[in-house]
């Protein structure tokens, strides 16, 4: 699903965000990306989403070469992803349901199915009763779950969650992690970044990618039961 060989990412101001990244993620894997703030976790997700492009090396995501020249194909590639952004990126002035529906409108789902799937996704994250609430009226945790519902409803092949537990208390953070890990199946991979390593200390299965100062180390725990 994702293959990186000798990938470097250097920003315009000369900051080296990632150095010599070599990584392979298979379909159906769950990957936890950890590391302190500013270590390069978000930069790694940006590369996978095609928000940034490798300054050196080779990166292929779901068969797509991640190079600037392929920008129009990368937009199409994003339709197969379910991103959960650190700052949610929900659209204000719209209800939770409208936000979820909006993320699905251009994906080619049968029109009759879109609303039903969106409601199901909200129920799955425990927000069925807030479907018609404006997103600006929701709490931090609820907004986070709407963003997850938007990602799930798209039925993506790859879910990318950037610091989904940030600013949440322990109970809500664990709840969010549980929802996200439950999304993994034989065709859906999940990548979660977090700086709160204590939250995943007890996780027994998955690939653990430690990012520090742009350099990554990969560790695998348990055997994934797909």
């Amino acid at each position: 699903m994702i293959e990186a060989k000798g990938v470097f990412l250097t920003y315009g101001d000369g900051t080296e965000a990632l150095k010599d990244v070599n990584l392979k993620i298979e379909a159906g894997e769950i990957v936890y990306v950890t590391g302190p703030s500013g270590s390069g976790k978000t930069s790694l997700l940006k590369l996978i989403m095609g928000i940034e492009y490798p300054t050196e090396g080779y990166l292929k995501v779901m068969g797509q070469n991640m190079v600037r020249e392929e920008a129009s194909n990368i937009r199409r590639l994003r339709r197969r992803m379910g991103p959960v952004f650190q700052e949610f990126k929900l659209i204000r002035g719209r209800t939770a349901l409208e936000n979820v529906v909006l993320g699905m409108r251009f994906l080619g789902f049968p029109p009759k199915m879109i609303r039903e799937e969106a409601k199901t996704a909200l129920e799955r994250v425990g927000l069925g009763h807030k479907a018609y609430s404006l997103v600006e009226k929701l709490s931090w945790g609820e907004s986070q779950r709407v963003a997850i519902a938007r990602a799930i409803a798209r039925k993506p092949a790859l879910i990318l969650a950037d610091e989904p537990t940030g600013n949440l208390d322990l109970k809500n953070a664990l709840n969010i992690l549980e929802i996200l890990t439950s999304l993994r199946d034989e065709r859906t991979s999940v990548i979660i970044t977090t700086h709160a390593t204590h939250l995943i200390e007890d996780v027994e299965e998955g690939k653990f990618v430690r990012v520090d100062n742009g350099i990554i180390q990969v560790e695998r725990r348990g055997v994934l039961a797909i």
């Binding site: 994003r78 197969r80 991103p83 990126k89 929900l90 993320g103 798209r154």
Partner: peptide, 16 residues
């Protein structure tokens, strides 16, 4: 611009 940026990240076509 924020809404447009979000839609772009979600892969919405330019037409949409």
């Amino acid at each position: 611009r924020e809404q447009i940026n979000t839609l772009e990240l979600l892969g919405a076509p330019e037409f949409f």
